[in-house]
Simulated scan of single mutants.
Amino acid sequence: MKKTLLALAAVLAVGMAHAEDTLKKIKDSGAVTMGVRESSGALSYTLGDGKYVGFHIEVCTRVLADIQKQLGLAKLETKYQPVTSQNRIPLVQNGTVDIECGSTTNNATRQKDVAFAVTTYVEEVRIAVKANSGITSIGQLTGKTVATTTGTTSVQLLRKHERASGVEFKEVFGKDHSDSFLLLESGRADAFVMDGQIVAGLISKAKNPADFKIVGEVLSVEPIAIMIRKDDPAFKKAVDDSIKNMIKTGDLAKTYDKWFVQAIPPSNTKVGLPASEATKAAWANPNDKPVEEYAKK
Results as ranks from 00 to 15, higher is better:
Cys101Met: 05
Gln86Asn: 10
Ala42Glu: 04
Leu76Gly: 13
Leu91Glu: 06
Asn106Gly: 11
Lys130Glu: 10
Phe116Arg: 12
Gly48Trp: 02
Gln81Arg: 12
Phe116His: 13
Thr104Asp: 05
Asp66Asn: 14
Ala74Asp: 15
Glu124Thr: 14
Lys112Ala: 10
Gly41Phe: 05
Ala115Gln: 11
Thr96Val: 15
Thr84Pro: 07
Val114His: 09
Pro90Asn: 04
Gly102Gln: 06
Asp98Asn: 13
Val122Ile: 03
Ile67Ser: 12
Ala108Glu: 15
Ala108Trp: 01
Ala74Pro: 10
Asn106Leu: 10
Arg62Phe: 08
Arg37Glu: 11
Arg88Val: 01
Gln93Ser: 12
Val83Cys: 10
Ile135Cys: 02
Thr84Val: 08
Asp113Ser: 12
Thr109Phe: 08
Thr46Asn: 02
Val83Phe: 01
Ala65Ser: 11
Asp66Gln: 15
Gln68Phe: 10
Lys75Asn: 11
Gln81Gly: 07
Glu124His: 14
Arg110Ser: 11
Gly134Thr: 15
Leu73Lys: 13
Val36Ser: 04
Ala115Trp: 10
Tyr80Val: 14
Val97Gln: 03
Val59Pro: 09
Thr78Asn: 09
Pro82Asp: 11
Leu43His: 15
Val97Leu: 06
Thr96Glu: 12
Asp49Gln: 14
Ala108Thr: 06
Cys101Gln: 02
Asn107Ala: 02
Gln111Leu: 01
Gly54Leu: 05
Leu64His: 10
Ala65Thr: 14
Gly50Asn: 09
Leu91Phe: 00
Val129Lys: 00
Ala108Phe: 07
Arg126Met: 04
Cys101Ser: 12
Asn94Asp: 15
Ile57Glu: 02
Ser103Leu: 02
Leu43Asn: 14
Val63Ile: 15
Ile67Gly: 10
Ser137Trp: 01
Arg110Val: 08
Ser85Ala: 11
Leu47Gly: 01
Ala131Gln: 03
Cys60Met: 01
Lys130Trp: 11
Thr104Ala: 06
Lys130Val: 09
Arg37Cys: 13
Gln93Ala: 12
Ala108Pro: 03
Ile57Gln: 02
Leu64Glu: 12
Tyr121Ile: 05
Asn132Lys: 15
Arg62His: 13
Pro90Glu: 03
Thr109Cys: 03
Ala131Lys: 00
Gly95Glu: 02
Val36Leu: 04
Asp113Leu: 09
Leu64Arg: 09
Ala115Thr: 08
Glu77Asp: 14
Lys130Cys: 06
Leu71Trp: 05
Ile99Lys: 00
Ala117Trp: 03
Ala65Met: 06
Pro82Thr: 09
Ile135His: 09
Ile67Phe: 10
Arg88Leu: 09
Thr105Leu: 05
Thr84Ala: 06
Arg88Tyr: 06
Asp113Pro: 01
Leu64Ser: 12
Thr84Tyr: 06
Val97Ser: 05
Gly48Tyr: 01
His56Val: 11
Lys112Trp: 04
Gln68Leu: 00
Pro90Tyr: 00
Ile57Pro: 00
Asp49Trp: 04
Ala74Leu: 08
Glu38Asp: 12
Val122Gln: 05
Asp113Gly: 03
Val114Tyr: 01
Lys75Phe: 00
Arg126Thr: 03
Asp49Lys: 14
Val92Glu: 01
Arg126Lys: 08
Arg88Trp: 09
Gln86Val: 10
Asn107Met: 08
Gln70Tyr: 00
Gly72Thr: 01
Ala74Phe: 03
